[in-house]
Design a protein around this nucleic acid. Structure first.
Lengths: 298, 298
DNA sequence: TAGATTGTTAATCGATTAACAATC
DNA sequence: TAGATTGTTAATCGATTAACAATC
């Protein structure tokens, strides 16, 4: 089935640097910021602000103004020197560039808590995304309604995708079902997939996958939070073993596996570190890695 | 209050390139990938796989192996040439690096659909994140339970944060309430914030903000999807006006605002384009920009 | 030893940023 | 005209990648 495990943008940067400025040469980093600008502009539009400077808009979007001007320069020359940008005009130009001036029917597969939340998410509808159908495999869920729409059975996936010309699918199933659902979506004709399940999806060339992991951001916060606490030089608290020659480390690792010790052999600097390797394993064995079971239908 | 509107990592790349390799010199791009590696490793660990090569692990995580080895080189020399990496050892080292070997109590503020989904999200608990409390301002929601926890009133925010030493807060309120909630969290002592509300938050120096926007990824997919459809040279469908001299464009923009026309003056290539600027405005004025009201408590 | 695989180097590429000429 | 602000240049910086020596 000619699948490439990583044909699309599934790196953490979602392919920002990978796909080298295709599509009319707009850098991925710029594309990723367009939604931010659009949001800020829409807010201005609602307040009937007629024009905005790069400085003001940049502040509202949370970027610096040089970057914003550079980004806009890829779209064209939509500003007026000495004046700024016409808000309405720019809203339209960015919407058009992003493809939001057309209607995008999407299906959401897996109607647990998260599927529910997405079905109700106002930010979809307001940007041209229309929920064409909600699908679930669980007979107990099928037939219920979410966001005013009936939840339909997975069996209808193919006919819905084909009849409604759905090209975008959203996966909010448990991780175990994600690849299978993905395959069916692709087979039915979907060419863009937004994946909330913590799984790397394999898709054929020509299919885009983007991924949202609700816990990754939290882990990155924890990383920085950890640094805030202890800024001492010994912060990293690395043990002698971490830098020991390979055989020593390998032996230590074996020991850890066998005996359940961390093998760190460290002192009081991080007293709770002992056994944490095993604790971590135990935890993940129970809770599962990125387990969405509670969020997804059973 | 010494707030900097953008003191932290709120760019689309979440500060990847902004914060120049502080914290022991691990690049932000690498930090952002550590959770991916950790997930793949945890899966291997559950299958009792003892060792893994950079090639195998890279495939499982969806990156290329050179990048993975480069990433790991920032952490230390945890592999064995000719053999690979000890899975358990690496799980522990990455967990420790990310700060996941310690307990992180978090509060979730705003218990709508999304707050519910996050409270139930297994991926939090399995990585050391413990939901210390669920908070909401709505008396109808307060007292109900989610994920086995009672929803408590916002009034208790400060006492909970202080007594339970909460340093991470998750905001899933409607956008209008986000800044106020953020201020209270920060005032109470929270120094890391994960923001799901479509708002740029202002925080003092020393506070990290990361943002998850459920619709941004979808917009980026739409951008690429749009390119797949029409690959003709006229793809961008730019009008003469788009490149017209400033005064002409400015006049056209005024005309559009006054008359409700798009001013594109184009032919049949994109028939529906006329009036879309105004349509877009109308839509967002109704639906709101990134409106989370349906996802959040009323 | 021979094969395998890591850790690192160096080249390349893309993104950011300050500065400023163009021009409203 | 004078002040303001864009669009672009060029320098800098960070990230990616292939290749390979080190070494298990």
């Amino acid at each position: 089935m000619g699948r490439s495990p990583q044909s699309s943008s599934q790196t953490p940067d979602q392919g920002a640097a990978r796909r080298p400025s295709r599509a009319r040469g707009i850098p991925e980093a710029t594309v990723a910021r367009l939604p931010l600008y659009l949001r800020a502009l829409t807010a201005l539009s609602e307040r009937s602000v007629p024009t905005v400077s790069s400085e003001e808009l940049a502040a509202a979007a949370g970027v610096n103004s040089a970057k914003l001007r550079k980004d806009f320069s890829y779209l064209g020359s939509y500003g007026t020197r000495g004046v700024g940008y016409d808000v309405e005009y720019l809203v339209y130009q960015i919407s058009r560039e992003l493809g939001l001036t057309q209607d995008w029917p999407v299906v959401i597969v897996g109607i647990g808590n998260l599927g529910h939340a997405l079905a109700n998410y106002g930010g979809f509808a307001s940007r041209g995304f229309r929920v064409a159908a909600l699908l679930d495999a669980d007979p107990h869920v099928v037939g219920s309604t979410a966001a005013g729409l009936p939840v339909r059975h997975m069996d209808e996936l193919e006919s819905i995708v084909e009849s409604q010309h759905v090209s975008i699918g959203v996966i909010t199933t448990p991780p175990g079902a994600a690849q299978q659902v993905c395959d069916r979506l692709v087979e039915a004709g979907v060419t863009s997939i937004l994946n909330f399940a913590p799984t790397v999806l394999s898709v054929p060339d020509g299919v885009d996958v983007r991924k949202v992991d609700l816990s990754i951001e939290l882990q990155i916060l924890a990383f920085h939070e950890q640094r805030k606490a202890g800024e001492e030089p010994d912060d990293r608290a690395e043990s002698v073993l971490d830098r020991a020659p390979g055989p020593v480390r390998a032996a230590a690792a074996k020991l850890r596996r066998a005996a359940g010790g961390s093998g760190k052999g460290r002192g009081a600097a991080e007293p709770a570190a002992k056994d944490q390797a095993e604790q971590a394993k135990g935890k993940s064995a129970k809770g599962g890695d990125g387990d969405l079971s509670a969020v997804m239908p059973a």
